[in-house]
């Protein structure tokens, strides 16, 4: 893993050197609060829990995470720094993972800044700690999966807009596969196992389980494998760009 740390550090720093970090964090926090209090009617639920807060994360991430990830490789390729970065004595896999982890940690920081929500529910009542902890864990893992997809699509093109649109669409499909409406439609035509099978591929299905406070190894393996597969694909995309 030679070279992992300096690349990780530079990448993370790059977020905070540009307005991207601040704009993202502000919008992320505002959107979270907006969804929880207005769309989710947090106060009407009369519950001291973060269930409503976590409920909207798959939809929020759909736009916010590709916005963070779209520059990962497009920017390097557009500005020519890819030629510098990829001629250092570092394995391509290491570079891809280092850049990914930097962006993931950045999203983790934004997620941690939602701590006033936790304080709010503790102030309002005595919430169950379990679902709060697993909710954050699930949300962070899911964010990683979105990000790995965005990283991979960003390697496909020099154009950040194309990279953004591609990853939003791929993520949307993975969210919708577990959407209740789709499941009902499938059930009306096919046997139930088909919709069960299809929903196993979805972010939502696995995220729901974790966010309810159940840590099942299968859900964690799902997110980790999406991350690993997408990043390996990312390596392949970069390799094939170099060859042609």
């Amino acid at each position: 893993m030679n070279g992992f740390y300096p690349i990780f550090k530079r990448e993370l720093l790059a977020y905070f050197r540009s307005p991207v970090a601040y704009v993202f964090i502000i919008i992320f926090l505002a959107a979270n609060a907006g969804c929880t209090f207005f769309l989710g009617n947090f106060y009407d639920s009369q519950q001291a829990s973060l269930e409503i807060f976590f409920l909207f994360h798959p939809w929020l991430y759909l736009f916010l995470i590709p916005a963070v990830g779209m520059r990962l490789w497009s920017e390097e390729r557009r500005s020519g720094t890819a030629e510098l970065l990829l001629t250092f004595p570092v394995r391509l896999t290491t570079t891809v993972f280092a850049k990914f982890f930097a962006a993931w940690v950045f999203i983790g920081i934004a997620l941690m800044l939602t701590f006033p929500m936790v304080l709010t529910v503790y102030f309002l009542g005595s919430p169950d700690n379990g679902p709060i902890i697993t909710g954050y864990l699930g949300s962070f893992l899911m964010a990683g999966s979105y990000l790995a997809i965005a990283s991979c699509t960003s390697a496909l093109t020099k154009n950040q807009v194309i990279s953004f649109i591609l990853s939003v669409n791929i993520c949307l499909v993975l969210v919708l596969l577990g959407w209740g409406v789709l499941g009902d439609t499938l059930n009306s035509v096919f046997p139930v196992w088909i919709s069960d099978f299809v929903s196993q591929f979805s972010f939502t299905t696995h995220y729901e389980a974790i966010r309810r406070g159940v840590i099942d190894l299968r859900d964690i393996i799902y997110f980790v494998s999406i991350i690993v597969i997408m990043l390996m694909l990312n390596v392949v995309v970069l390799e094939s760009h170099k060859a042609s």
């Binding site: 070279g3 740390y5 300096p6 790059a14 050197r17 030629e83 001629t87 004595p89």
Partner: peptide
């Protein structure tokens, strides 16, 4: 040691910082 065409480097970094980054990558 490679100087690519049109000398790409990370714009948001300070010169010293950039050189330290490269030195760190080089071990």
């Amino acid at each position: 040691g490679y100087l690519p065409e049109s000398a790409p480097s990370y714009d948001e970094m300070l010169v010293g910082e950039f050189l330290s980054f490269v030195a760190e990558i080089r071990g």
